[in-house]
Write a protein that binds this DNA or RNA. Structure first.
Length: 113
DNA sequence: GCATTGACGAAGG
DNA sequence: CCCTTCGCCAATG
């Protein structure tokens, strides 16, 4: 049986991120119930290479909107190129209007009162 | 088995 | 406002 854990939750949430939007490690962590486990999110994405379906990790940036994980992709431009391909403007490894395109699961998936 | 690191974030000084 | 420290959990050395 596939052992579901924090990592699997991260993958699931990231796959829910619509194209043209980005999310943050903290947002995912917070959505999972551990706002301070943002490091685990990054760690989980570190293993996303062997996960199927492929996880759009390029839509996950740090809370500054910086492509902090670009170094973990095939090339240093894979992340920004993927984002640009989805309509996300990236300038100097920083997402433009990051706050505007931020897709927070805790907000977008918030249980409507 | 303990110490350090890791694609982070918030809080404290 | 900038820098430092803690927290969080897992993996690696």
């Amino acid at each position: 049986m596939t052992e579901f854990s924090f990592f699997d939750d991260v993958y699931a949430v990231v796959r829910l991120v619509p194209a043209g939007r980005v999310t943050t490690y903290g947002a995912i962590a917070k959505y999972l119930g551990s706002a301070r486990s943002s490091r685990m999110v990054g760690w989980a994405l570190n293993g996303s290479h062997s996960v199927v379906p492929k996880v759009p990790a390029h839509r996950v940036v740090n809370r500054n909107g910086i492509l902090s994980g670009k170094h973990h992709f095939e090339t240093f431009t894979t992340m920004c190129d993927s984002l640009k391909a989805e309509g996300v403007l990236v300038d100097d490894d920083v997402v433009v209007d990051f706050k505007n395109i931020l897709w927070d699961p805790s907000l977008e998936l918030t249980i409507e009162r």
